[in-house]
Amino acid sequence: MRLELNDVTLTYPDGDGRLTALDRVSLAVPGGGLTAVVGPSGSGKSSLLAVAATLIRPDSGTVAVDGVRVEGLAPGRLAELRRRRIGIVFQQPNLLASLTAAEQLQVMAQIDGRSPRKARPRALELLEAVGLADLADRRPHQLSGGQRQRVNIARALMNDPAVLLVDEPTSALDHERGSAVIDLIARLTREQGTATVLVTHDRAHLGAADRVAEVFDGRLRVPEPTG
């Protein structure tokens, strides 16, 4: 398994007590597999994603990314793990205003200590894969919402991650564009062999997932694989 969460519990301070966001959650995602996580707002979906992305340390339980256990890793090592083995597709595209579409991808090479210039061919290749080959030199304000989300997806794949974490990618898109984005993520998951977790509240897009896990009040239920 490329992503494994075992018995993960996460709580937040809540007044005098603590709120349980994740309650003994276990999830294993193989390479090339797309697992959708659904649930109502506040159920713990994004907390699950944040723990998997190593952005929050759980109170208990273990997390392994591409075979690397993350407990006890220093912040610097966690950052290295994120840039080399984890791709994150944000809910909002979160593109940098000063960078073109290609540069949004090239910056991933730069933060990994590699030459952004040498990374440009790979960036163009990925932009072509998401259907934006002709828009490589456009800045975010020159792109539509769907195009920005595609750049967001391509950026997540720039460093060939083992794990792809996708956070509500269709929340700002209409149904047609949302479906296109989900289909794109499913296709890239197969092509790139990533272990993909897709967090969404929109059940209309679940057909593309290999299986659907449901989270409610911090508890995760993983039914039989779909399709």
Binding site: R82, R83, R84, I111, N159
Partner: peptide
């Protein structure tokens, strides 16, 4: 701040 948060989430080190 938001850009820095994104870059950090993507794996940029604080030193960089």
């Amino acid at each position: 701040g938001p850009d820095v948060a994104v870059l950090k989430a993507l794996g940029a080190s604080t030193g960089t």
